[in-house]
Design a binder for these strands. Structure first.
Lengths: 210, 210
DNA sequence: GATAGATAGTGATATAATGAACAATAAAAA
DNA sequence: TTTTTATTGTTCATTATATCACTATCTATC
């Protein structure tokens, strides 16, 4: 049981590798080299091997990696060999987009409950999942043993929702509200700020100024 | 004209600082220290000063930073002192969510054209912007001198759209399709993979295994 | 069975990012 | 006017990450 620190960049790349391997596997290719993976996803071959080396030896020297095996190993590493129960709060346009996003279910993320303050919305059903009022969040999420929460409410409401999710026992939160949330250290928190992504682009476009 | 390399992490933090400063400014606070900013956004004070130091001296020793001034400086650095013309391709749920996302317009990102293959969609109007068929993409984007493209089409179609955007002269692409795109080196490309974000969380939840 | 060619795994090295410490300096107090 | 206090800007040390170059070893061929 090594307690080696794994860079987050490595995790992100593993996720990309697995996606690429799914594609390669679909084409019926059986074996692949680190160089070919590197080519396919835009990194160096050494990087691919280093990333995998954190977790074991998955290849055969002189030959390469078995596509199906490597894919399965990476999915296991990422925790995707089992399904995850996800709750989503905030059924605006973004929330609606995420509840119907096929990429989540494909990777084993099942949205098991949806919450919104709007009583009109809280009567509807999305993909067979009832939309419920916020008051029921803690109860339902606890009951379902939901591990992951997605926040797609306005910035001003996000901290309250995060608090409820923590109270309900989620282990991780994916936050789309453009605000810094405070959660206990044992809760995994990730922020996706859509505007920030555009701002990195505009900075880079104008970066010759510096 | 320094040609100093700026870490991308710095740019992302600057974006967060500016958001936080907007909030602080709204409360009428005039002066702020690096420590207070650090507290507000969850980084170290030294990190805040380091990030700013790449671009100049914006504070006063013994005093701190003027909130309005610093905010304006950062927005300038990020290229947000002017508006940007953005085109969005792929009016699914995610595309629809992004076209109506208020956070973009607030920061000066104006969606000036929308494209979709579906002839039904290509007759509608979102936020006063006509939805047009793909055939018109190159022409319209050129005409508008649109600098940024957002891709929200399925993975299989994404490369074609990217090619069209490049042909039409965009300088940067924000790609939401879960696929690695090939674009010329001079085009700024950023990928937002929603599933990857959840996968980093599930890895971290289960990370005690390593 | 020996040899050549290919490719994984890995230790050493280089680069980048972060953190800690401190000198410089402005404002407030004495 | 001098001293004290606060806080920036910057240097130096540390840590983290990526790259390079080498070794080990597998398969196929002679």
């Amino acid at each position: 049981m090594k307690t080696l620190k794994i860079p987050e960049a490595t995790i992100i790349r593993l996720s990309v590798y697995s996606r690429y391997l799914t594609e390669v596997d679909r084409k019926g290719i059986v074996t692949i080299s680190s160089g070919e993976i590197a080519e396919g996803v835009g990194v160096s071959p050494a990087q691919v091997r280093k990333d995998l080396a954190y977790f074991g030896e998955f290849g055969t020297r002189g030959v390469g990696y078995n596509v199906k095996d490597l894919r399965r190993h990476i999915l296991k590493i990422l925790g995707l060999s089992v399904d995850w129960s996800v709750t989503l709060v905030g059924l605006g346009n973004l929330g609606l987009a995420l509840t119907t996003y096929k990429g989540f279910r494909e990777r084993g993320f099942i949205i098991t409950s949806i919450f919104d303050t709007d009583p009109g919305k809280a009567a509807t059903k999305i993909n067979g999942v009832d939309v419920m009022p916020l008051e029921r969040l803690v109860e339902v999420v606890k009951q379902n043993r939901t591990q992951i929460g997605i926040i797609t409410v306005p910035a001003a409401a996000a901290q309250d929702i995060a608090d409820m999710m923590v109270k309900a026992g989620v282990q991780a939160i994916l936050n789309f509200a453009p605000v810094v949330l405070n959660v206990p250290a044992e809760i995994e928190l990730r922020n996706v700020d859509l505007a920030v992504n555009l701002e990195v682009l505009t900075f880079n476009i104008g970066a010759q100024r510096f």
